[in-house]
C-alpha cells in the first residue's frame, strides 16, 4: 500500500484515497482532425511500460479530487517525487542536467 504525498494537500495519504490514471504528460493533439489515423491510434492506445522510472498521473479521489503527477520507480516502487498538474519533474530534470555534465547515473534507477 503506497504512501503518497499529495502536492495539493501537502501531506502523505494512503493509496486507498487515490486512483491511478496511467501515464503522465500525455498531450491530446491540439488539432485532432489533422492527426493521421496512426497518430490518433498512438494517442489513444499506446503507452510506455518502463522498468525503472515512470511518470504517472494520479488523482486524490477521496481527498481534494485534484490530479497530479508522480515519478515512481516501477522496480522498487519508490516514489521519488509528486508534483502538480502543469509542472515538470524536477528530479528528472536534475538527472538529465547531471548526465549532460557527465555525472554518473543516480542509483535510483535507470531512466527509461
Amino acid at each position: 500500500m503506497f504512501y503518497i504525498h499529495c502536492p495539493y494537500c501537502n501531506e502523505r495519504r494512503s493509496e486507498e484515497e487515490f486512483h491511478a490514471k496511467g501515464q503522465a504528460h500525455l498531450m491530446r493533439p491540439a488539432n485532432p482532425e489533422e492527426a493521421s489515423d496512426r497518430e490518433w491510434g498512438d494517442y489513444l492506445f499506446f503507452r510506455d511500460n518502463p522498468r525503472g522510472l515512470h511518470q504517472e498521473m494520479w488523482v486524490h479521489a477521496a481527498g481534494c479530487r485534484k490530479f497530479f503527477n508522480i515519478l515512481r520507480n516501477t522496480v522498487s516502487y519508490e516514489i521519488l517525487e509528486t508534483y502538480p498538474m502543469g509542472e515538470q519533474s524536477s528530479v528528472l530534470a536534475e538527472m538529465t542536467a547531471g548526465r549532460e555534465r557527465g555525472e554518473p547515473r543516480r542509483a535510483a534507477g535507470a531512466v527509461a
Binding site: 494537500c9 495519504r13 494512503s14 486507498e16 484515497e17 477521496a62 481527498g63 481534494c64
Partner: peptide, 8 residues
C-alpha cells in the same frame, strides 16, 4: 484541533 480531512 482545527484540522479536517476528506478521506476514505
Amino acid at each position: 484541533e482545527g484540522r479536517g480531512v476528506s478521506t476514505v
